[in-house]
Design a protein around this nucleic acid. Structure first.
Lengths: 354, 354
DNA sequence: GTGAAAGCGCTAACAC
DNA sequence: GTGTTAGCGCTTTCAC
């Protein structure tokens, strides 16, 4: 412990060269005599020297660090997103500074953002769910940010796709249940101020509003709320014979409530969830669900951010200043790749009357 | 975008004072004339100035940043640990640099460690599960590290508690099942090279080896392996009437297999899991499980690390150099607080014959 | 109370 | 090829 780190100067002294030469070796510059290079490398090895990334970033104006802002990690969604982000960031050679928002208050977001900026991150991934107008202040702020910011959370209109994948997911679920011969399909949605919940609900409505009633319950993503939701819907709509839940946890709650109410799934009640959490295949019965490709999606966001960063860097070198247009361009390039990420219906027992 | 950040010099110039004075204002030093302070603060506000944390750490030798090394976040355990770490780090004013290890190879660990050191973290939380001898190289290395490192993963002998909480958990599960009148209690364990899995197994054995046979299956933490595990155990031990699973996911797999085999839970088969994931209460039937207080535990680790860091800092100021002994001391102080974190049996339907 | 000078660890630009 | 000088943004002496 408390063993002081080795500096470039000490290495230089020990190798009887200047600090500059050591630096050249570190950065694999060609203009070093092979012999000198070997000597220096030997000393580096021997002393266990590690260049100080902090000092480097200070002068290079590039920290090779990305900031990630997200919410509590106790839900599968945020967690998987983070997992994907880390994977890709790692690939591209970035370290990650993590900043969690705990109570969905704006000042928390502001704090997180400033914190990351203070740490001179090269870019920011904003993976906080869109809730109410919590994006508003940020959207205002983006133009003034010294670094690029990309939204990395769940897919929503911020992707500027023609239709939100969440909405498409809602449609897939509803269409599937109708196709399986269910007639009255209820929704157990997420909190309606969450953009993702809203979109899933819209998708479900797209399909059902013309054909049937639209029994609907607003949950809070927890299994408890799913359970409560089914009880309440069944009471209000005795003919309800299927439910689309906006996440798999709520679907799990629905399954439990169904067992307790003596409803057989899928015979008496069809159930479809959302997210395809790893456990879903092991629910009883196994849960049909909508896969939204969160991990792949967040990887793409990191790539996108990376490209913007690189583009900015290049532009600065060129003294050109059409940076923003270039960014726009790159961003669009990325978006068009989104085709393989179409939401996918994963059919299991919970929605298939045999 | 690409808007250059404001520096302290610009603020100084704008406020017609020296950079030094601005620095004094930033750090709330007393020796600044109230009037000057106000002027400077106004300029800071107006320019939206943010001190550069990187430059600061360079000179202060303190980055207020902790490094976290953990494995893939696709399991509940690591995720919750991270969640707890982040919460407490945030409380104590630290930012977090995240470094995930993907393939459990030693060089990955080495890379992660070096990466964090390069970033001049003030301390490191090693939240990687102990698997095989993957701690060995690290234990060797710790004495040479320039910063303190604390193990932040699941509870194991690294806590130097008399008995691992994991083992106590295993005992609780087995004792409970026997008390409920089950006679032949099988284990569906985690991979045996995981220290945590090993300890849970030992706890189970402590209770059962004398009274009954010890049917045992080695899973891989996944629900799929839990399912397979039950099928196999039942075949080998037709009289098996209870199962203790080393995590809740495997317990879920057991429940599914039981349903498929026509075994009623809890009448024909008692089931106890481990972790108390939020979903466990909504399994069918609701799952009895062992709560290991991962979040609280990881918070404690962060506090511990913080205290060591502070102690080192104080020592350096004092020119004293008994730092290591102090560390040892502090660390021990922390450990003795562990009493409220005793594993807890959470009884639900899956193990209670009515 | 305030400013000037020096330096944290490193690298870019120029000498030689 | 290599060393010297300067400086990233900030804080810590130590003058005044």
């Amino acid at each position: 412990m408390v063993k002081k780190s080795v500096t470039i100067k000490e290495v230089a002294q020990e190798a009887r060269v200047s600090a500059q030469t050591v630096s050249r070796v570190l950065n694999d510059r060609p203009d070093v005599a092979p012999k000198t290079r070997r000597t220096v490398q030997a000393v580096i090895e021997r002393l266990g020297y590690q260049p100080n990334a902090i000092a480097r970033s200070l002068i290079r104006r590039r920290s090779h660090t990305l900031g990630v802002v997200t919410t509590e990690l106790d839900q599968y969604g945020p967690m998987r997103t983070l997992s994907g982000i880390e994977r890709e960031a790692n690939n591209l050679g970035y370290s990650l500074i993590l900043s969690l928002i705990h109570h969905h208050e704006t000042d928390q977001g502001e704090r997180a953002l400033n914190d990351l900026l203070a740490h001179q991150v090269d870019g920011i991934l904003w993976a906080v769910a869109e809730i109410g107008d919590n994006y508003a202040w940020l959207l205002d702020k983006i133009p003034q940010l010294p670094v690029p910011l990309v939204f990395g959370g769940d897919p929503s209109h911020t992707e500027r796709m023609p239709v939100s994948p969440n909405r498409i997911g809602g449609r897939l679920a509803a269409e599937h249940l109708l196709a399986q011969g269910y007639h009255e399909v209820g929704l157990i949605g997420g909190p309606l101020d969450w953009e993702a919940a809203q979109q899933r609900r819209l998708g479900w409505q797209d399909v059902l509003s013309r054909t049937t009633q639209t029994p609907c319950f607003e949950g809070d993503w927890s299994a408890a709320s799913g359970k409560q939701g089914l009880r309440q819907l069944i009471e209000q709509y005795p003919n309800l014979d299927a439910v689309y839940a906006a996440n798999d946890q709520m679907a799990l709650g629905v399954l439990q409530a169904a067992h307790q109410l003596g409803l057989r799934v899928p015979e008496d009640l069809g159930v479809v969830g959302t997210d395809n959490i790893p456990e879903a295949a092991y629910f009883w019965p196994p849960l049909t669900t909508i896969q939204l490709h969160m991990i792949e999606r967040s990887k793409m966001r990191v790539q996108q951010l990376h490209q913007i960063i690189e583009a900015n860097e290049a532009d600065e070198a060129d003294e050109a200043d059409e940076a923003d247009e270039v960014n726009e361009q790159r961003a669009n390039d990325c978006k068009t790749e989104g085709i393989p990420l179409q939401p996918k219906l994963i059919i299991r027992k919970s929605s298939v009357r045999s």
